[in-house]
Simulated assay, not measured.
Amino acid sequence: MRTHNRHVFMCVGPRCTENGLQAQAMFELMGEKIDARPELTVKRTRTHCMVACRNNGPILVVYPEGVWYNRVDEAAVERIVTEHLVGGKEVSDLIFHRLGEGDTCTLDKQDV
């Protein structure tokens, strides 16, 4: 296993794009972009449906930050690699979720 300090998980469908073809292509492009920068210590793993895209896939998650990106196309891959993985700055206009935020069930203190 390659040494890494970030782990990128990317959905390759099959629901987010037709038969997962575009999603798989973006996963492969992400690999090319990461491998082209030997200074990056990033591991990449493909997943199947993360049940989060609602037709806004493919989805890509970067850990340990816990940042979820959607609608990952060629331009998004380039920006995520350049700005987030290399530059350390999240691509805020592509983020749709963050780890620890957006719980669907919240309780009022008086309900506890």
Rank of each mutant, 00 (worst) to 15 (best):
D73G: 11
A23I: 07
C16R: 00
V51Y: 12
C53D: 09
V12E: 06
E32V: 12
P14W: 06
A25V: 05
V62Q: 01
N19D: 13
E39N: 12
E39Q: 14
P14I: 00
F27Y: 12
V62F: 02
T17F: 07
K33Q: 14
G20P: 04
V62C: 07
V61F: 00
T41P: 09
C16N: 00
A36Q: 13
V62A: 07
H48D: 15
M10F: 05
R54L: 15
P14V: 04
R54V: 13
I34K: 03
P64K: 12
M50G: 05
G20H: 03
Y63L: 12
Y63T: 11
N70H: 07
P58W: 06
E74L: 03
V62I: 13
N55M: 12
Q22F: 10
R46H: 11
G66W: 06
D35E: 15
L60F: 05
K43M: 12
A36F: 12
G31Q: 09
E65D: 15
V67T: 13
Y69S: 02
M26C: 03
C11H: 03
K43N: 11
Y63K: 11
D35L: 15
L29P: 01
E32D: 15
C16V: 06
M50P: 04
C53N: 04
K43L: 13
N19V: 08
G20K: 01
L29F: 06
E39Y: 11
Y63A: 10
G13F: 02
E65G: 07
E74K: 07
L40Y: 10
C49D: 05
K43G: 09
R46M: 10
V67C: 05
Y69P: 00
R44I: 14
Q24M: 08
I34P: 07
L40N: 11
V62T: 04
V72K: 05
A25L: 10
C11Y: 00
H48L: 15
T41D: 15
A23V: 05
A36M: 13
E28R: 11
V67S: 05
R15V: 11
A25S: 10
R71Y: 04
V12H: 00
